[in-house]
């Protein structure tokens, strides 16, 4: 019989493992030239991301960003949706019209990010605001961001807006030390990003993102406070990005000392060691989880690769829903 604390940790770990293996597969497909466009991984960010996804329920809103494979799986996105989008299957949620991390199902509360950093936060606000108007209570919304994106005007406007409206927003910032190649010293001048919370009048939470136990606890607490009506909660999690900005980038600008510091620990390894040390699981179980995940991923890839890409001749080349207003003249 598992302890109440161990069960969520095992479930979280299993999702992190699936996300890591899925990311590894995308990296491999990218290197093999099987993916059009970029590939963006969440390596090292799984503990934080999964904690966000697990803190949400059906009816909540989630706006993941580029490094949130784990959170997406935790929120209920299928591996097949991810694979179909990366491989451009016309049967995926984006039907080849958008790709890679720009995917979602808005009706299920999973927002498909646009590339413009910071732009999804106010959209989450709008959904929460609509819940209020529709008298739906007890929901929360999470928006994920990197340290670099906190410098955008959109971030400022949206966090302030959420605070003014006292919306149940989880503003999750993964401070992974770099925005593409730019170090945080060129991004902001306050000591800690979380210090900004006071200025906005929102809850403040810091966490070591290499520590799954801490992430589950801190994100869970923040979500509970938002759900209880205490307004927006800013979570700043510290880690190091354990990959390039995208798979095209070798990240040679990251100093080795940083990689070797505690900040550079791999949250998946840390969690695995902890679970084994606590004897909450054993190596054989982990090996089974790994092979099950790999099989699921390989099946999804095999399926998506057999599926048709979008057909430019069958494509309806209109961008509006009001079909009667489509321009009929050649342009």
């Amino acid at each position: 019989m598992l302890q109440p604390v161990t069960e969520p940790q095992l479930a979280a770990f299993r999702l992190m493992l699936r996300a890591r293996l899925l990311d590894d597969k995308f990296a491999a497909l990218y290197r093999a030239g099987k993916i059009h466009g970029g590939v963006f991984l969440g390596r090292g960010q799984e503990a934080l991301s999964v904690s966000v996804g697990l803190s949400l329920r059906k009816g909540d809103v989630f706006a993941p960003l580029i490094r949130d494979a784990a959170g997406r799986l935790a929120f209920g996105e299928t591996i097949l949706d991810a694979v179909r989008t990366y491989l451009g299957s016309s049967l995926g949620p984006m039907r080849g019209r958008d790709g890679n991390v720009h995917r979602g199902r808005p009706r299920d509360g999973l927002l498909p990010m646009i590339s413009h950093l910071g732009a999804m936060i106010s959209v989450v606000n709008g959904m929460l605001f609509a819940h209020r108007l529709k008298k739906i209570s007890g929901t929360v919304g999470a928006a994920c961001l990197g340290d670099g994106a906190t410098s955008t005007g959109a971030f400022h406007e949206a966090l302030n807006q959420a605070a003014v409206e006292k919306l149940p927003l989880l503003m999750v910032v993964a401070d992974n030390q770099f925005a593409y190649s730019t170090p945080t010293s060129r991004q902001f001048a306050c000591d800690e990003l979380v210090d900004k919370a006071a200025g906005y009048g929102v809850g403040a939470h810091s966490v070591d993102a290499t520590d799954l136990t801490a992430c589950l606890k801190v994100v869970g607490t923040a979500a509970a406070r938002a759900r209880a009506g205490e307004g927006p909660q800013l979570i700043v999690a510290k880690l190091l990005r354990l990959c390039g900005h995208g798979e095209h980038d070798d990240a040679s600008y990251i100093p080795p000392e940083m990689k070797n510091s505690t900040l550079g620990r791999d949250c998946l390894k840390v969690a695995e060691e902890y679970l084994l040390q606590q004897k909450w699981t054993d190596a054989a179980t982990l090996a089974t989880w790994r092979s099950e995940a790999i099989r699921e991923i390989e099946d999804a890839v095999a399926q998506a690769q057999r599926e048709p890409g979008p057909d430019p001749f069958a494509e309806k080349w209109n961008a509006i829903a009001s079909e009667h207003l489509n321009e009929t003249h050649p342009q």
Binding site: R107, V123, G126, L128, A130, N160
Partner: peptide, 18 residues
């Protein structure tokens, strides 16, 4: 608030919610 970006963003979110 004087936040044109967030004003429109909020509208989009609300529209998604019907």
């Amino acid at each position: 608030p004087i936040s044109e970006d967030a004003m429109v963003g909020l509208a989009v979110g609300a529209a998604i919610e019907g």
